[in-house]
Amino acid sequence: MSISEIDRQWTTRIRRRVEGKLPPEKLLPDTQPVYVSSWIYVFGVATLSALGIVIATGCILAIRGPQWWHGSPYGHFINSLHLWSVEIFFFTMVVHLWGKFAMAAWRGGRALTWMTGVVTFLASIATAFTGYVSQTNFDSQWISTQAKDGINATGAGSIFNVLNTGQMLMWHIVLLPLAAVVLTALHVILVRIKGVVPPFEEVTE
């Protein structure tokens, strides 16, 4: 096998591209530009941490099934952890969003980073909504019957039936978390490739 034949292989070409765009020292950096010095920078990693806890507690709830938490104090406690980690997730994500807006963090070829972040936010809202609908209590009965009108009005209700509890549970624990995690991973990889946005140049000073 000649060298040029190896060079032309899909595997080789993809590996080289990845190595070029995201070398290990960019993926796991040990230095940071000195302007990265503010508490506002911790809300991205805080959101990521909360997402981790949301997924972990969701996995524990999944082990015993959707109704378990109504009857078990242990299950109810795990549900409480799941709820509060979701509240923290959105809390930190919104502060992160405000912070990145204040810094106009899309500058310097980072528009795709911003956009993956926004889509992650929207996917998270859908994930949380399907979670509320999957609680199998009065809250989910009420929320689903209310939300159906909005979703039906868009035409999406013909496929996405919020009153079909099994369907909503599948969306909540398979499809939407998968989307949210993949989007989050893309978002973080883009941040690592492009680095943190530099400060605006102050012309007056």
Partner: peptide
């Protein structure tokens, strides 16, 4: 309360001094 806490957290994150500044300077 959640909304007020969110706004307060945002303002605090902008205003509070971030630790580790002196070390950063030495390394420069």
């Amino acid at each position: 309360i959640v909304v007020i806490l969110m706004v307060c957290t945002f303002i605090a994150a902008l205003l509070l001094p971030f630790p580790g500044r002196s070390r950063r300077k030495e390394n420069r």
